[in-house]
Each structure stands twice: as structure tokens, then as C-alpha cells.
């Protein structure tokens, strides 16, 4: 395509968008992280970040994000695998995706009722003789709801990479005498690793920064980096500290992207295009 004269016209709005809504916001976050509450230049925020409070916060945030990603993967992989074996797989995939397009808040709200003290889950527990449990406002409910929210995003890339896998490879593996488990471990899984990686990417990064689910489901018992940022920006109004946490979150995001980005070919993530 060699239409040089067409170019400048297109570039203006899109270029302005990149400048004002991609570069400028990140620059502003970095800039604000060097100011304290009264607007003086300082490194205090960074010193604060390395104190035990924020260190613990970061560690627990990573731990929860790890749990959420791990369980999403654990349940998503078999789901994606079995889905590729169904006869109308595109339709089934669509059925998996529909719940993910229902407003996030509504689904979270449903769990407030479901896991509540008089909710159906507790009624079931009572029936089985386990008795009423405090389910809401626990780590368990937080991880469960987060996995529920994220699992379609994990299924999707894995499904796509499994779908692309040539059945001939699996037949070849069986012909060469591998059993089901060896075929999975040595052929299927390595070849779908890119799908798994993009799944991890689309789950882990948002899981680090959740704040709505922590507030509604975990009742402030779980504090993540996202909750801390929201707290600093909207409650304490300490934009400097909030920005500092955001800077670290952005850094973590880039590191995770570097680790999880496979070779560009065969990338099946959320809309990465070569």
C-alpha cells in the first residue's frame, strides 16, 4: 500500500489520542508520584512504598492474583479442551461468553445474595449437615467470585490455540506409542502454551488491581493494589501516594507482559495483531 498523500489526514485524530490519552496519562502518573499532599517535590512516596505496610500489601496482592489466575487456569483448561471436542463448538463458546457480557456489577451483586447468611449456598450447607458458614467477606469468597468473573477470559485464548492444533499431531503421537497423558504433556500442552500465556496475561493483570470485588465481596478484608489506589485517589485524596502505587502497578504490568508474551506468531490473546 503506497498512498503517501492520504496519510497526514488520518494521523491527526488518532495521533492526538495517542498523545493525550496514552502518553500523557502515564507521564502524569509518574509526575504526580513525586509530589506530596501539599504539592512539594519529594521522594517520600517512594520511601513509603518500601515500608512494611505497602510491601505486605504488594505481596498479598500478588498472592491473591496468583490464586485467582491459578484456579482460573485449572478450571479453564479442561473446559476449553472439552469445548473443542463438542460438535457445535462455536455455539458452545458463545454460550460461555454470554455471561461475561452481563454487567460485572450485577454478577458480583448476585454473589452477595448467593453467599449471604440466608442464601441458597448456606441453605444447602445446612441441609448437608455442615451448618451455616460465614461465606461472605472471606478470602475464599473473594477468590471464588474473581475466578468466576475471569474464567471466560482464560477459556477464550486457550480454546483458540487448542482449536488451531492440528489433529494429525495428536494422531501421530498416539501412533508413536504415547499414552493420553504423555500426549497431553508432550504435545498438546506445549503447543497451546501461547494461549495459556495470553490467558494468564488477561487474568493476572486485572486481578492485581481489582477493587470493586474486594469492597463488595471481601468487605475490605482483602486489600489489593487496586483498592489502595482507589483509596488514595478517592478517599484520602493523596494523589501523590496513589500515583506512586500506580507507577509500580504499571511496572508490574510491563514485567508480566514481557514474561507472558510468547512469539508473535500464533498469538491468540485479546486482540494482539501482528
Amino acid at each position: 500500500m503506497n498512498n503517501k498523500p492520504l496519510r497526514p489526514l488520518y494521523i491527526i485524530p488518532y495521533g492526538a489520542w495517542i498523545l493525550f490519552f496514552v502518553i500523557a496519562p502515564i507521564a502524569l502518573i509518574v509526575y504526580y508520584s513525586f509530589f506530596d499532599l501539599s504539592g512539594n517535590f519529594t521522594f517520600e512516596n517512594y520511601q513509603n512504598f518500601f515500608t512494611s505496610v505497602y510491601f505486605k500489601l504488594t505481596i498479598s496482592s500478588f498472592w491473591y492474583a496468583f490464586l485467582i489466575t491459578f484456579f482460573s487456569l485449572l478450571f479453564a483448561y479442561p473446559t476449553a479442551y472439552f469445548l473443542t471436542k463438542t460438535t457445535h463448538k462455536q455455539l458452545w463458546l458463545l454460550l460461555i461468553i454470554i455471561p461475561s457480557w452481563i454487567n460485572l456489577l450485577l454478577k458480583t451483586y448476585a454473589f452477595i445474595g448467593l453467599l449471604g447468611l440466608y442464601g441458597p449456598v448456606n441453605a444447602f450447607l445446612e441441609m448437608t449437615g455442615l451448618g451455616k458458614q460465614q461465606l461472605l467477606f472471606t478470602d475464599f469468597s473473594f477468590v471464588f467470585v474473581a475466578v468466576y468473573i475471569f474464567i471466560p477470559f482464560m477459556i477464550l485464548p486457550i480454546f483458540n490455540s487448542l482449536d488451531k492444533l492440528s489433529p494429525a499431531l495428536i494422531d501421530a503421537s498416539y501412533d508413536l506409542g504415547a499414552n493420553t497423558w504423555t500426549t497431553f504433556r508432550r504435545v498438546i500442552f506445549p503447543l497451546t502454551l501461547n494461549g495459556v500465556k495470553s490467558g494468564i496475561q488477561v487474568v493476572f493483570i486485572p486481578a492485581l488491581s481489582l477493587f470493586m470485588i474486594t469492597r463488595l465481596i471481601a468487605g475490605n478484608k482483602v486489600i489489593t493494589l487496586g483498592t489502595a489506589i482507589e483509596q488514595q485517589f478517592l478517599v484520602t485524596q493523596n494523589w501523590g501516594m496513589g500515583s506512586t502505587i500506580a507507577v509500580f502497578l504499571i511496572l508490574f504490568m510491563f514485567i508480566i507482559m514481557l514474561v507472558t508474551s510468547g512469539s508473535e506468531r500464533g498469538k491468540t490473546g485479546n486482540g494482539k495483531v501482528k
Binding site: 502518573i29 496475561q201 502497578l249 504490568m253
Partner: peptide, 10 residues
């Protein structure tokens, strides 16, 4: 890929 919190705050 940015988390919503970062987009919102910035």
C-alpha cells in the same frame, strides 16, 4: 492491557 484503576486514576 492497563488495569481499569490505572486508566481511571490517570
Amino acid at each position: 492491557v492497563s488495569p481499569d484503576v490505572i486508566i481511571g486514576a490517570s
